[in-house]
């Protein structure tokens, strides 16, 4: 990744006269700033509107400097805003998303670690074919699985429940986590495993003593990738849950899409920012690992 590979030893802008150099340097920074504004402004605008009174937003729209500022709309959005006849705000949907994303992330990561360990270090006949099959799961579009899932969830009594979504995201997630972990463990030298086996270490002992201590980087990458992906997912939540059981993404669409009555833009904006905060927080804290996951997810 970019952060580990040293910069090649040349400075493209060091050519030309000093005056040209200053000119091109400033052009570079000007462009960087213009793009930064383009990327930051939309979210900043929505954030400012979480603080503005409704009349002000209705009159001037979202793109205006706030005159009156209040934090009360955050409280309303969290705890007392009425959605579908219940006035409890988005806090319950936020909790639903946590109840969905955390277990599904833990399960799929744990299973992926063991799978990856087996498929890279305990190779058997057919292991590659199996790995190919698991990888296919990464590319399978969700639309192909909607009707079967509806049937399976119904049979298991998990229709319209967070537990059903946990099941879906765990099964679907295993493909990603197995792929990530297997590719990572391929870099663990086989000699290490061989030596441990000669010393009499068994399957689980090698996993605990050799593989797990080497795993923190891939665990962090996988957890970040899974949690963000599951938190942000919309289709399964929209198809398989309704009312009180929705995750936050489908709840936001449900209340901002239904255009009946007066719109509460400030409260809606606060709810949207709340939906964005957990993945944003993870991105800012684990940025390096987030990028590493992206690269692996994309190229491998």
């Amino acid at each position: 990744m970019a952060d580990v590979i040293a910069h090649h030893e040349f400075d493209p802008l060091s050519t030309g006269s000093p005056r040209r150099r200053i000119l091109s340097k400033s052009a570079v920074y000007a462009l960087l700033i213009v793009f930064a504004v383009c990327y930051l402004l939309p979210l900043l605008i929505i954030f400012l509107n979480t603080l503005r009174p409704l009349q002000e937003i209705v009159r001037t729209g979202f793109i205006a400097w706030p005159h009156e500022v209040s934090a009360q709309y955050w409280g309303e959005a969290w705890g007392s805003f009425c959605i579908g006849g219940t006035c409890e705000g988005v806090s319950r949907f936020f909790k639903n998303s946590l109840m969905m994303a955390i277990p599904a992330t833990v399960f799929s990561t744990a299973i992926g670690l063991v799978n990856g360990y087996i498929l890279s270090k305990w190779r058997f006949r057919g292991a590659d074919a199996l790995f190919g099959l698991v990888t296919l799961g990464v590319f399978l579009p969700a639309q192909m699985t909607l009707l079967p899932w509806a049937f399976v969830l119904g049979k298991l009594g998990l229709s319209n429940s967070i537990a059903g979504l946990v099941l879906i995201h765990t099964v679907q997630g295993i493909s990603f986590t197995t792929l990530f972990c297997r590719n990572y463990f391929l870099n663990v030298p086989d000699d290490l495993i061989k030596a441990a086996r000669i010393d009499g270490a068994g399957f689980w002992r090698i996993f605990r003593r050799i593989i797990l201590p080497l795993s923190p980087p891939i665990i962090i990458v996988t957890v970040i990738w899974q949690f963000t992906g599951i938190w942000n997912e919309f289709l399964f939540g929209a198809v398989f849950t309704s009312g009180d059981h929705q995750p936050i993404t489908s709840a936001i669409v449900a209340f901002s899409g239904s255009g009946t009555g007066e719109r509460h833009y400030n409260v809606e904006a606060a709810a949207v920012i709340m939906a964005a905060l957990p993945p944003l927080f993870i991105y800012l804290v684990g940025g390096k690992y987030f990028v590493r996951g992206l690269t692996q997810g994309a190229v491998k």
Binding site: N232, A276, P279, Y283, L284, F290
Partner: peptide, 12 residues
């Protein structure tokens, strides 16, 4: 700054 949109959902 340039990469953060990828962290937030398509819905947001």
């Amino acid at each position: 700054i340039y990469l953060y949109p990828l962290a937030i959902s398509f819905i947001v």
